[in-house]
Nucleic acid binder design. Structure first.
Lengths: 160, 160
DNA sequence: TTAAAGAGTACGAAAATGGTTCGATATAGT
DNA sequence: ACTATATCGAACCATTTTCGTACTCTTTAA
């Protein structure tokens, strides 16, 4: 359905929340409480993020999780890579090759690969640090786009 | 999973195949045979595409489906709109509003909306006509796609 | 030694998806 | 008018994926 899973959504929430105090160590329970999520769910997401080297964990009493890198260096694409099951790709044959029933003569595949690149690039250009910055409401160069009434056009150039 | 459904994938296959002979009327059975798909599946996809005004149908003997518009005017984004269930959006709260448990103070939503726009734009910039063009032909839609008028500022500091 | 906190596994419910079937309706050709 | 052809529309079921939770084990600070 062209949608990220809820776990991935939670991952962005968690990382965004942590990015507001990048040096602090957060416990899974504290994050769950702050974000209104279940502790096991948060724990699961954090563990997976740890495998993706986006957070580091400290076990034992007074332990917890903290960001592995400055929030400017954590992109949305990396969160998706860490939390989504399959390799990145909008279609089956563009994520892994050798599965299509027609294979050759399928020029569609090349075009999907190109579309993938563009989408992925868009995701790589947004960092967790960007996500916590309030967006200018309703002004920007891309106002003529399709998506919903709440579409907020913003300039990524406000990052520095 | 950040992936389109197979039905949507079939939709692009079908429309792409039809775009090679834009004026012709195709029967569902003929398309299914040409593409190696089941007839009921193709029929279902075509019916849905008809609801999205991407193809027109002619009932009765010698009937079938034909493209509603020139292939240059049918974008991948429209195919997704027609075949995917939910409104376009990478996250729940960016597709429809009023569902998030935190709602206010959730600046993430604005950023997801922005990401959505970029992704959607990438999808809108690719037409069915583009999909049947072989890749390496010099002025292929590659540059147009990546360096398009609304492309993201691609080069920031490269992380990852 | 004790308690806090992460690690890992496993499970059940729910939802999405993919594919099919059946009957109804419309049209072309005889 | 009759019939073969072909779409239309809705309903149905099996499979897969996803979501959330629970339970147990390991690590480590106080």
């Amino acid at each position: 359905m062209l949608r990220i899973s809820k776990l991935t959504d939670y991952g962005t929430l968690i990382l965004t929340h942590m990015a507001r105090d990048p040096a602090r160590v957060f416990s899974a329970a504290g994050l769950a409480d702050a974000l209104g999520l279940g502790v096991p769910t948060v724990s699961k997401v954090l563990k997976t993020l740890g495998r993706g080297a986006l957070v580091t964990s400290q076990r034992g009493a007074q332990g917890g999780y903290s960001l592995a890198r400055p929030p400017q260096q954590i992109s949305v694409a990396e969160i998706i890579d860490a939390l989504e099951e399959h390799p990145f790709g909008l279609t089956e044959c563009s994520a892994s090759s050798g599965l299509c029933n027609m294979e050759d003569g399928c020029r569609i595949r090349d075009n999907w690969l190109r579309i993938n690149k563009v989408v992925r690039h868009a995701l790589q250009d947004v960092s967790v640090a960007d996500m916590i910055q309030p967006q200018g409401c309703g002004k920007g160069p891309d106002e003529h786009l399709i998506l919903g009434p709440h579409a907020v056009a913003t300039d990524k150039e406000k990052r520095a």
